[in-house]
Design a protein around this nucleic acid. Structure first.
Lengths: 219, 219, 219, 219
DNA sequence: GATGAATGAGTGTTCATTCAT
DNA sequence: CATGAATGAACACTCATTCAT
């Protein structure tokens, strides 16, 4: 795989990561991520977060006005970076020329986002848990994530359809079917793939998933 | 579609529904379902539930020893009924003879369970939200739901594979791919299908989804 | 020991015991006695009493207007009977003529009251625990018990003092010293006398106690 | 009476008394002692304690994890100090040489402990009320108090018996008889000695009590 | 900037008591 | 006479947040 792209992605992912965070602040964010992921936002207490972070309770509120602000400060940057590849203009320029099938595009995205997902598993768990209860998050998600993804992916789909390598359904439908298959793969992989004694064969399942999508979306 | 089966299913779904629930108890369960769905389990307070149900707070605890027992008492029966069709011995006997393709099986299940899902949307939301935090629910889900579904669906998949109408992957993989596509369809349908001014064309999306699965799983 | 006296005492002790109590009422009183003794009045709940008695909660309040009335109804009659021997005019008539020493009087009282104490241990425990918190009980105790005992015992002490067989202290002092020794004996006997592997030798301890009192009160 | 001993005892009693207690904590302990003594542990509410202490209810639980921990934290140190003289190695070394009779030992202990008792009356009331319901307190009492007292007093009793100045009963019996007489004296003194218009003559009663014990335990 | 004691509203739960059946 | 569902005040305890140090 093209090294430049990977490097660019990595840089982008790091972008702003620990920007001007004090040592204590970092500890707080780390502790909060863990505890929010374990028990959910409402089920977590600031005192437990302070304890695990090894700071005083007051210190949390010196950096974040409320508990909810702490939540958002954790979730927002990861969300931003989740969509990063689709925001990069260069990304698809290169992609367009390099990967000349939906299949290859799928593999590229999957591989890159899977690594990201694994790295930020906790935050994503929090995000999924909390999105129904926080309209700000919903809006952010729709505007920042969904819209960007559609914007960037749709032209590619149209191109593949013109080339006659993709079924002639609405791009929204194609994206929906693709994404639900990929999420289904990623979810089961997270839950069962790491259990002891599990018979999960990642290579086989990934190939099956991509084959399933490709055959399902063949013209 | 065979009327008797549908009727049987309906009856089964109703079975034991409000059996021996007092008026107040019903109000409590209704209010709790709504509030749990709105704010999550940990974010809901028993006092608010009591208020919305129009009963005294003490009344809740006369019927349910703890708040968690209230949660489980709401979620468990719906989960049980979700899987009801797969528990019916008759179901597949008839199915085997009537529907002679995976396609038809899919449609039959989808149609029936979709109505159920819509009816119990709140409870399913609660279930999905809370399952990560309550090991009892996880166990129940795996033992009561997943196991039953696999047990009943696997033989049919094997039969279709023998007949050469289904790709030769592991039944687990086939179920995973099918279910993630169906859930994706149902989820988007719930979220976007009912928005005002939505361009969601349910008939078309459902056909696309089934076509996607069938093509994706063709041998 | 004179049989008639014992029989009279026994009859008196039984007097009014189950006077017009329904079956349920008896069960309630029994259950309440046990639970009050185990956990104290404030620490016991009417629901637990109802449960152990095998009646509905409402039934308790049909017979006793409040929880406190239940307490008093349990404690009062036993208190009344505790003092019974001293109220019997016949008792001391006979006593005066039959036992011609403080020593013999002591033994007579001790033996009779010890049996009573053992039989009503629970109620006495309740009484001792609750007396500090219920002024009615205090008053009742002073008026019904203490006053009667002094009234009846004082003449006997004076007589023994005249006869020159008892030290010439105030009867109140003599009663105080006697009673504290007897209570001390009874208390330790209750606590340690029944422990498994206990080396408590009741006969020896009782004789020592009486000898101690007699020598301590010798002129 | 030897001044040095008294001073040592006073110092010992003060030892660690209000060590590192914040102002609020002290108020809480004081309020709790009063209310527990008035109404018993189960009958007291943390909200009332907070109110009387002039602090927020939460403040109580910042210092004591549970209501019971508050109880124990009040009772335990007083119990420990009650037995303090018996723990002092010096105490009996001096006693042995200075007081050469049981009579004098009695007076020394009585005088010192009586002042202590009066000072900590509330806590002792609490202790007596609650000991039947809290096995921790029972154990503590047996191990810390009873055992220490027996350990220290027994050798002295044996010595007096060898010298022929004390009756030849088991040390346990002698301690039991002594203690019940002393407790009886202290109890009545507390209850009646301070009533208005009471005819209680403390000097006389104390002398009578000691004379009673001494005569009762004469060989 | 960091602390942690203090707060008081809020939590889930228990309680003695009532009353329609 | 007995029941047990219903009550709502009270309970012990937790919480996010504040603020003097």
């Amino acid at each position: 795989m093209s090294e430049p792209i990977e490097e660019w992605l990595d840089e982008l992912n790091k972008l702003g990561e620990e920007k001007s965070m004090t040592d204590k602040q970092l500890k707080i964010v780390k502790a909060a991520s863990e505890i929010f992921a374990e028990k959910g936002f409402a089920g977590s207490s600031t005192s437990e977060i302070a304890q695990r972070a090894g700071v005083a309770e007051g210190t949390i509120f010196r950096h974040y006005k409320t508990k909810k602000e702490l939540l958002v400060s954790i979730v927002a940057p990861v969300m931003a970076k989740l969509v990063a590849p689709f925001v990069m203009r260069e990304f698809y320029k290169v992609l367009d020329s390099r990967y000349d099938s939906y299949d290859q595009m799928l593999r590229a995205i999957l591989e890159n986002r899977l690594a990201f997902l694994e790295k930020h598993l906790n935050v994503l768990k929090i995000f999924i848990q909390e999105i129904p209860f926080h309209p700000e998050l919903q809006e952010q998600f729709e505007k920042l994530i969904l819209a960007k993804v559609f914007e960037k992916v749709t032209p590619n789909i149209l191109r593949f359809q013109e080339e006659g390598t993709l079924v002639n359904w609405s791009p929204y439908t194609i994206i929906r079917l693709t994404v639900s298959s990929l999420i289904g793969y990623a979810a089961i992989r997270m839950i069962y793939g790491k259990r002891e004694g599990s018979s999960w064969n990642d290579e086989k399942e990934r190939e099956a998933t991509i084959a399933f999508i490709m055959k399902g979306l063949a013209p």
